[in-house]
Design a protein around this nucleic acid. Structure first.
Lengths: 335, 335
DNA sequence: CTGAAAGCGCTAACAG
DNA sequence: CTGTTAGCGCTTTCAG
């Protein structure tokens, strides 16, 4: 498994290292056509592959960017990653994807690892709990874009869903169909998304004069979702409509639906955030608020590339996208 | 965004580069405790991060391995990746995951990219169509393990499911429940898995004297699965049981089930390869043949690490794992 | 049009 | 116990 180096190629072709380097970098303007051919042949014969490490070390850029997603199990994350990959592929960059698994410690390690590997920039769906580290990156002016979640006090480009608006739309849809007892279930609001959604939820209830029944809002860890859902349905006056925080929460809710033999949508109408691959196949088909994940990923990638190239036009700011309602049979009309 | 180098640290601490390097590599046996402290402080103050690129260049190893999966959308792939990551994390290696998207061209590019990045080894779920490239890697004695799919004529460690056995078990289960018309639907058999499964299917039919109705075997591209499924159910004598090739095929079949209003399991019993996250939630719950994906990933990782460390004990060979039947309500008894 | 030489940031003998 | 030195494989002036 001997590595063949540029030196070997040069030797075989009877030229110097630098000439081979020229060749590799497509600078053959002033290169003799036969030199070129000799090099070509030597490379083929030796099956030479340049060592990117050495090149990056010299050039001080790796043409590689990193993505760290909080949790790759979300359909949203995979979509976003795909978009970013597609974008950067077209710009001759490599992309390294890391999954923090909702674990701030892992996130920290990945950030440090990627920086040590000298990636040229980072797109992060932050866990939100490494504020100091984020700050340091921003202070160093390291190319960085956040997605999906904002972190208080960090001045950075954010690509996010307009969560409040999305929740307003969801609640409005329920109200239109005659629902008055509208609940929401989501994971514990450690990150901005969930906070925004909760805020939007209360705003919407208020706007529709539906009071502000704290019992109808359930926030807990994923493991307890089933339990909380059961408790929700055991209320003396249970909700007739439920807004679900994301695809993973939905899975738990549906398990609860099954266990508790809750009739959807007769007994309870359901609307969930995020696209779910089996939404259409479930009985009844589940209504969703999809995020334009691919577009959002592309936007984040563009912003990052601009930063890398020092072409950032404006101040850092939020780039808001709108949720897309897919109304299916999981919502009953009470009118 | 100035990069701080080992030189800067050395300067600030008033020692030489090499001493700092010693420190970084935990060789403080013979290091003065105050030297150590000075370095410690300098690193903190400068917020120094070693440049892995430079280190790897020198050491001729990157402590990084690559995984290339044929299609990350398979639940199997994500499980496997997780296992491999967990394993290597524990051995201080980094893992880069790439998704070939069932595209041999992409696969080739990723292999070349990862090699150029000097990863120390590769675990591949091969598309099967880059035989020459695979061969070259093997010839170079490059650390390499294949998973899930064998490639004819490549002498390499393979970690795979015993597909024939799994299909035998599946057919046996159907037969036990009185099924005689057992169909199978899967993607076009470009890779060994599918071939093995088809072979196993015919073997099992023969063994149970069920004849060899070619009409009951459907192999086609993912896009045509729905169509083929419909045709299967339109036969004058349609099957009563169906074995589904994998989770993605299942999605298509279930769409077909819905469109064609096929009653599961009354009209058709279903058993699918691979775990599916909503298997339990579907109505009726879907029976599956799970692969011990996590164990398989771990095994592959072990094999790779041994190769990297030159500790490969035996000849390359196949490591077979057994499928795990999860029988749920999607299978009716005809007795 | 091509080659010599310096250097990217780090490690690894080997002196001292 | 610490510093000097020589590279890892590549790119990049700058001569020729």
């Amino acid at each position: 498994m001997k590595k063949v180096t540029i030196q070997d190629v040069a030797h075989k072709a009877g030229v110097s290292k630098s000439t081979v380097s020229q060749y590799l970098n497509q600078r053959f303007e002033y290169m003799g056509v036969e030199t070129k051919e000799k090099i070509e042949i030597a490379i083929k014969e030796l099956n030479y592959q340049p060592n990117i490490l050495a090149r990056s070390l010299k050039q001080k850029k790796t043409l590689t960017v990193g993505i760290i997603v909080a949790n790759i199990l979300h359909h949203y994350s995979t979509q976003v990653c795909r978009a970013i990959e597609d974008f950067f592929q077209g710009h001759n960059y490599h992309v390294i994807i890391c999954n923090a698994d909702d674990n701030p410690e892992k996130e920290r390690k990945y950030i440090e690892m990627l920086r040590a590997k000298q990636v040229d920039g980072l797109i992060i769906v932050p866990t939100g709990e490494n504020r100091e580290l984020y700050k340091r990156l921003v202070a160093e002016n390291y190319p960085l874009v956040f997605m999906d979640r904002k972190v208080e006090g960090i001045n950075i480009n954010n690509v996010i869903l307009n969560n409040r608006l999305a929740v307003h739309a969801a609640v409005f849809h329920f109200v239109e169909h005659g629902h008055k007892k509208i609940a929401m279930i989501t994971r514990t609001p450690k990150v901005s998304v969930r906070e925004e959604r909760i805020k939007g939820y209360f705003e919407a209830l208020e706007h529709h004069f539906l009071g502000n029944d704290v019992e109808f809002l359930r926030t807990t860890e994923l493991e307890n979702i089933q339990h909380e859902f059961a408790r929700l349905m055991e209320l003396k006056s249970p909700p007739t409509a439920l807004l679900v925080g994301n695809d993973l929460v939905l899975m738990e809710v549906l398990k609860g639906v099954k266990k508790g033999r809750v009739a959807i949508p007769k007994q309870l109408s359901i609307l969930t955030f995020d696209e779910v691959n089996f939404a259409e196949l479930y009985d009844p088909p589940i209504s969703t608020i999809a995020q334009p994940a691919y577009e959002m990923g592309t936007k984040a990638a563009e912003l990052l590339l601009d930063q890398i190239n020092g072409k950032q036009m404006e101040e850092s700011r939020d780039y808001l996208f709108e949720g897309i309602l897919h109304i299916r049979e999981s919502i009953a009309s009470l009118k």
